[in-house]
C-alpha cells in the first residue's frame, strides 16, 4: 500500500526529470528573463515570509491563547487561502485592491499608489497564500506551550512583552522556523494568485513559476529544468525541517 503511494508521488517527478533538458539548465537559468524571474521570486518570497512572521505571529498567538469571540471564524478565514484555488484568491485581491475597488481607488487618488502590476502585488499575493501555513504551524506550537512557563516568568518580574520575547518565542522557535520555511516554499511556488493580481510583467512581476509556465509554450524541456529549481528549494525546505512534523 505504502509502496503504491510512494510510487504515486515519485513517478510523475521521475518522469518529469526524464523529460527535462539538463544540459542547458545553467545557461537557461542564468540568462535573461529566467534569472530576473528567479531573483524576483526569491526576493518577493523572502518579503512574504517576513510579512508572515511579523503579522502571522501575533495572529497565531491570538488564535492559540485568547478566548476571543469569533476566534473559530477568524481561524477559518485565515486558513481559507489554503483551500481556495489561488486564481480565485487573486480575483479576491483584485476585488479588494484594484483601482476600481474603493480601497485601491483611494490608495491611487490619495497616495498615488497602484498595487496591481507591481512587485508589491506579488508580495501580497504570495503572503495571502503562504501566511496560513505559517499561522497554523505556529498556532499549533503555541497551544502546546505549557502556560505555566509564562506564569512563572511573570512572577519573576517579566512583563507580558518580555515574557513573549524571552520565554514564549524561544519555546516555539523550532516551529517558527518550520512555519517560515513552509511559507517561503509556498510563496516561491505561487502562481495563480500572482498572475491574476500582479500580472505577468517580465522583470517586474514575472516570478519563476510564471516564467516556467510561459516557457512551457516555447521550450518545454528548458521550462521543466527550470521548474526543478523550485522543486529543489521545496525539497531543501522540507528536508531541513524533517522530524519537526513528527516531534511536535
Amino acid at each position: 500500500m505504502a509502496t503504491v503511494t510512494i510510487a504515486f508521488f515519485a513517478l510523475p517527478l521521475l518522469a518529469l526529470m526524464q523529460r527535462a533538458r539538463w544540459s542547458t539548465l545553467w545557461s537557461d537559468l542564468t540568462t535573461g528573463p529566467a534569472l530576473d524571474a528567479l531573483r524576483l521570486s526569491v526576493a518577493c518570497a523572502a518579503a512574504a515570509t517576513a510579512l508572515s512572521l511579523v503579522f502571522g505571529t501575533p495572529l497565531a498567538w491570538v488564535l492559540a491563547r485568547t478566548r476571543m469571540r469569533g476566534r473559530r471564524l477568524v481561524r477559518a478565514l485565515v486558513l481559507l487561502p489554503m483551500i481556495l484555488p489561488p486564481v480565485v484568491g487573486g480575483v479576491a485581491l483584485l476585488a479588494a485592491f484594484s483601482l476600481n475597488s474603493p480601497l485601491g481607488g483611494w490608495l491611487h487618488d490619495a497616495l498615488d499608489i497602484q498595487l496591481t502590476f507591481s512587485p508589491a502585488a506579488v508580495i501580497m499575493a504570495q503572503t495571502f497564500v503562504a501566511m496560513p501555513f505559517y499561522v497554523i504551524t505556529v498556532e499549533g506550537a503555541l497551544s502546546h506551550v505549557d502556560p505555566r512557563f509564562e506564569d512563572v516568568a511573570g512572577t519573576l518580574g517579566a512583563g507580558p512583552l518580555a515574557v513573549f520575547r524571552k520565554v514564549t518565542l524561544p519555546l516555539i522557535a523550532p516551529s517558527v522556523a518550520a512555519g517560515a520555511v513552509l511559507a517561503f516554499a509556498r510563496a516561491l511556488g505561487e502562481f495563480g494568485a500572482t498572475v491574476t493580481f500582479a500580472g505577468n510583467i517580465a522583470g517586474r512581476t514575472q516570478t519563476l513559476p510564471l516564467a516556467v509556465y510561459l516557457r512551457l509554450e516555447a521550450d518545454p524541456p528548458a521550462a521543466i529544468a527550470l521548474s526543478f529549481v523550485l522543486v529543489a528549494v521545496a525539497v531543501f525546505a522540507l528536508v531541513s525541517m524533517r522530524g519537526h512534523w513528527f516531534r511536535t
Binding site: 505549557d146 505555566r148 512557563f149 506564569d151 512563572v152 516568568a153 511573570g154 512572577t155 519573576l156 518580574g157 517579566a158 512583563g159 520565554v167 524561544p170 519555546l171 522557535a173
Partner: peptide, 20 residues
Amino acid sequence: VAPPRRGVGIVYQDHLLLPH
C-alpha cells in the same frame, strides 16, 4: 497588581526551568 509586581516566588512540581 500584575504578577511581575507582586514579589511572589513560585516553585512547581515539574520545575518548569526554561529549556533554552
